[in-house]
């Protein structure tokens, strides 16, 4: 899976969680750019990503995420 395909798959998980697609997917995207992506929904998105890509994160790794770019980097590093 290349980065673009990964990005699309992550976008689908976010839409499924926040129940809307009113955001533009980009490498700079942050949770604050997406209405409904808050503390409550964050872990649902993370669990969705873990299940979809069969990866496991550490809480500390999640705490260091800055934007979509760092999330995609982290997923790709786990998938290798």
């Amino acid at each position: 899976m290349n980065r673009d395909e990964l990005s699309e798959a992550v976008k689908a998980i976010i839409i499924d969680t926040v129940k809307h697609d009113d955001f533009v997917m980009s490498e700079e995207l942050t949770a604050t750019d997406v209405s409904g992506w808050d503390s409550l929904s964050h872990m649902s998105i993370i669990t969705g990503i873990e299940q979809k890509f069969s990866v496991k994160f550490k809480l500390k790794e999640l705490n260091k995420l800055k934007n979509m770019s760092s999330l995609l980097d982290l997923i790709l590093s786990k998938m290798q």
Partner: peptide
Amino acid sequence: STWAMDYLYTPLTFIFRSYGKAGT
């Protein structure tokens, strides 16, 4: 509420994340 979300709810949902809605 944000304090509780960040320092309690988030770590707890992380721990219980494989239990789905029951974990939540």
